[in-house]
Nucleic acid binder design. Structure first.
Length: 203
DNA sequence: ACTCGGATGACCT
DNA sequence: GGTCATCCGAGTA
């Protein structure tokens, strides 16, 4: 486990989205450490991407983190009740990000289970184990990620991403989810996931 | 295994 | 006032 440094994030969201697959997302809460392997991502390419919050240079208080330095968190509220966690890519003023859509639970399963279903891990049914972290809103709930970590530096000690001993896997490239409004951009193959992994939201 | 609708609030026109 | 990078429970099969 080696924490990724700033330079790792200094690249196009399209490249970063693929590079993040297989890495470990670590969140240190007050009492424990929660870890999940990143198994599904989407690239949001900013200025020229009709699906991106920062399309055509749109800049609001909400999206400010996407315009900031690479290697920080962008967390926003969706549908009034869920959070989505993104990793800011590229560089300052180039507003690109990678949405994390699926995690495989690695460490802190008990806490994730309580956060999601308010019951211990051993009481979960098989389908609930998958549902712990197989979606962008679900994984935020499982880890306890909310908007108060928006803008957090991912090279710090609270929330960061690690490389681990490489295990080879196949990457599937497909269309992004939930962006039917984005005209031609809806068909771009900018979603990536680890083939055959159980924690992919939409296989 | 599915489809369908409700929840719920920030954001933007 | 409409939209939305979602999830879950209820209903049907």
């Amino acid at each position: 486990m080696k924490k990724l440094e700033r330079s790792f994030y200094n690249k196009s969201a399209l490249v970063l989205a693929k590079d993040l697959l297989g890495k470990y997302l670590v969140f240190n809460t007050d009492s424990e450490r929660l870890v999940g392997k990143i198994v599904e991502t989407e690239a949001y390419m900013g200025f020229n991407d009709k699906a991106a919050h920062t399309y055509n240079g749109r800049r609001t208080p909400r999206t400010e983190a996407m315009y900031g330095e690479e290697g920080h968190a962008y967390v926003y509220l969706i549908y009034g009740m869920y959070n989505c966690f993104n990793v800011v890519a590229a560089e300052k003023e180039i507003a690109q990000a990678v949405l994390i859509r699926g995690l495989e639970p690695i460490e802190g399963l008990e806490a994730m289970s309580l956060n999601r279903f308010n019951k211990p891990y051993e009481k979960l049914k098989g389908s609930q184990i998958i549902a712990l972290t197989n979606g962008p809103g679900k994984l935020c709930q499982a880890l306890g990620i909310t908007r108060d970590i928006n803008g957090e530096d991912l090279t710090g000690n609270r929330l960061y991403i690690c490389s681990v001993k490489e295990v080879s896997f196949d990457i599937v490239e497909t269309k992004r989810i939930g962006i039917d409004y984005a005209e031609e951009a809806r068909d771009f193959l900018w979603r990536f996931y680890i083939k055959d992994n159980k924690f992919v939201s939409v296989p």
